[in-house]
């Protein structure tokens, strides 16, 4: 965990389970990354991880219940992006999510978020019964 002084940008916000609120937060965060000079590939990867983790928290974790909150703690230093996303749902076991890359699952229109987060991030850890995800991406 970086020291407080090392963060170039950091947020710690609880938002209601509403997609448009999440989109605004993600757009703002991505703009900060771009302003700090992170390259397109890294910005895309971080955008993907934030988008998929927060939308999963809203849709699957909190079941679109607007009274339930999603807590997002995210930030970046000169060399590291790190974020945690926590929902108030029932939790889940990531190992139970069907592999979307199998031929029989290719045409299924769900279940790619968990796999994409793993592909685009360097480190991914679940805790609190699947209600909390920690993601890291190293720059360079």
């Amino acid at each position: 965990m970086p020291a407080d002084a090392d963060w170039i940008w950091k947020i710690d916000q609880e938002i209601p389970s509403r997609a448009e609120v999440a989109c605004g937060l993600i757009r703002d965060f991505v703009e900060k990354l771009e302003d700090a000079g992170w390259n397109e590939a890294l910005v895309f990867a971080i955008h993907m991880a934030l988008e998929e983790s927060i939308m999963n928290a809203i849709k699957h974790g909190n079941a679109n219940d607007e009274s339930k909150l999603v807590r997002i703690v995210a930030g970046f230093t000169a060399s590291l992006f790190q974020a945690t996303v926590t929902d108030e749902g029932e939790g889940f076991n990531p190992a139970d999510v069907a592999d979307p890359t199998l031929d029989e699952n290719l045409e299924i229109t769900s279940g790619r978020g968990v796999m994409l987060i793993r592909q685009f991030m360097d480190d991914v850890e679940y805790s609190q019964g699947g209600r909390k995800i920690l993601m890291r991406k190293h720059r360079g």
């Binding site: 979307p100 890359t101 031929d103 290719l106 045409e107 790619r112 796999m115 994409l116 592909q119 685009f120």
Partner: peptide, 8 residues
């Protein structure tokens, strides 16, 4: 590519 959807 990651999602194997380049085969679909």
């Amino acid at each position: 590519g990651f999602t194997q959807l380049d085969s679909l």
